[in-house]
Every structure is written in C-alpha cells, then in structure tokens.
Simulated assay, not measured.
Amino acid sequence: MTAESTIFVLTDTPALYGNDLTGHGNPPVFIRDVPTLLTRLKDAEAAGLVLEIGKVMRASRAERDRLFSYAGCFPVLRTKPNPRVGSVAYLDPMDRFLDNLNDTSGKRQRGHNRVGALLPCLFAREDDPSMAETLEGLILDISPGGCFIKADKTFKGETFAQVRIPGLANRRPIYSSIRWCSSDAKKPGLGIMFIDIAKDQAQEIAQMQDTVAD
C-alpha cells in the first residue's frame, strides 16, 4: 500500500470492525455520512472504500451516483453490519480488496472471480423496485459482486438498475450500479455491480462458482 492510500469506512458503528481494517498502512478513517465521504474523496489520490450497504441505500440518488463513480478508481468492499450480535458481514473477499489497494499498476482484480452462466433475468429502472416495467436480458457471467447482462435494449441514461434473477431461490430485485453499457452488435449489454444483494442470493451465486470449480 502506498503511503497516500487510505481506507474510508462508511459506518455509524466503527467498533464493530475491530482490528479487521488495521495494520494495512494508514489507519482507517470512519465516516458517518455520504456527503462527508464525497468531500474527502475529492482530494484523495489513492483510497479504498468500505461501504455499508444500508447507509448507501439511504443516500440520495445523486449522492449514490457520485459515490459509485469512484468505484472505477478505488477498490470497494461492501459490508452489512449486525449490531445486535456485534459483527460485520463482508460481501467481498477482504484479501482481494487489500490486494487491489496495494496494486500500483492500475490493473486491479475483480472483487470476485466471474463464472460463465446462461441465466435469464429482468431489469428495471432504479425507481421501479416492483419491476412494473422491465426489459429482458441474459446473464453470461456472474459472481456475488456483479454480472454481465446481454441485452438488446436498455434504459437510456440510467446509472442504477433493479435486477431480478428468476433462477435464484430468492427472486428479490437486486439494486445495482450500471458500470458500463455497450451497444456493440457483437455483445450488447450491461456491466453490473450488485449493491443491495441479500445474503442468501450472494451465497447461492457463490455456490454456482464452487460447482464450476469442482
């Protein structure tokens, strides 16, 4: 990790993280709200983002849009705290997050390895969690961190989406960030980063990876 790298943690409960994020260079900086985090990131040359999904989802759309624009520059570690039992669930591998934070080549690894898939899905605009108006797509690769959706049609100008995967036991729409959109005739579609993914959904997707590995 370079001397300038800082881990910013979006949380109201720093104590839950214990020493998980210490000993990796600069001490982590705990921040309670998205606007303050955005202000700090404007001047950051190298950083890692530890984002509690609940706090991200309570931010405004404009704030979420700005926050995830940094995901293309800085590694992200998604978390879900459980204050009742005094623990934090990490939705991404800690070692991969730290490796990406250490990397100075600009060639970061994905937070999760993707596996090939052929999963039909539906996606809708972010303000349509009931999925009243959907488009169809086919997921060609997937991990607990995100997926690629092959789709001939997309919602123009959208930076977030609701993604439903009927093949999962839990069909709850997954609130997601649209990282990029391609209209290339050979491979049209969307690069998706899952944001608000349920624990059982992430586990089922991880099991797909284990099956392929076996």
Rank of each mutant, 00 (worst) to 15 (best):
A3P: 10
S5T: 14
T6Q: 14
I7A: 06
F8E: 05
F8Y: 15
T13K: 12
P14A: 10
A15S: 12
L16A: 05
G18S: 04
G18D: 05
N26G: 08
P27D: 07
P28A: 06
V29L: 14
F30S: 08
F30V: 10
F30E: 07
R32M: 12
V34L: 07
T36Y: 08
T36F: 08
L37Y: 07
L37N: 06
T39D: 14
K42Q: 15
D43R: 15
D43A: 14
E45R: 15
A47R: 00
A47N: 05
A47L: 03
L49H: 04
L51N: 03
K55V: 03
K55I: 07
M57V: 07
R58K: 15
A59H: 00
R61C: 09
A62Q: 10
A62G: 09
A62I: 10
L67A: 07
Y70D: 03
Y70P: 04
A71E: 14
F74T: 03
P75M: 04
T79V: 15
K80C: 09
K80E: 12
K80Q: 13
P81R: 09
P81K: 05
P81Q: 12
V85N: 11
G86W: 06
A89C: 09
Y90C: 05
D92F: 01
D92C: 01
P93E: 02
M94A: 10
D95M: 12
R96F: 07
L98N: 03
L101P: 03
L101T: 04
D103G: 00
D103C: 05
T104Y: 06
T104D: 13
K107A: 11
K107W: 09
R108D: 08
R108N: 14
G111C: 13
G111V: 04
G111K: 08
V115P: 00
V115H: 01
V115N: 02
G116T: 13
A117S: 11
A117Y: 02
L118F: 14
L118A: 15
C121R: 00
L122T: 11
A124L: 06
A124S: 15
A124E: 02
R125M: 09
R125E: 12
D127N: 15
D127G: 02
P129W: 04
S130D: 14
S130P: 09
M131R: 07
M131G: 05
T134S: 06
E136T: 13
E136Y: 11
G137S: 03
L138E: 12
L138S: 09
I139M: 02
I139E: 02
L140P: 03
I142W: 02
S143D: 10
G146M: 00
A151I: 00
D152T: 12
E158M: 06
Q162A: 02
V163F: 01
I165L: 01
P166Q: 02
A169H: 13
R171E: 11
R172D: 09
I174M: 00
Y175C: 08
S177E: 12
I178E: 00
C181K: 11
S182R: 11
A185E: 14
K187Y: 10
K187R: 13
K187I: 06
P188K: 03
P188I: 00
G191D: 00
G191A: 03
G191T: 02
I192V: 08
M193I: 09
F194A: 02
D196E: 12
I197T: 01
D200K: 07
Q201M: 02
Q203Y: 10
E204N: 01
I205K: 00
I205C: 02
T211K: 14
A213Q: 10
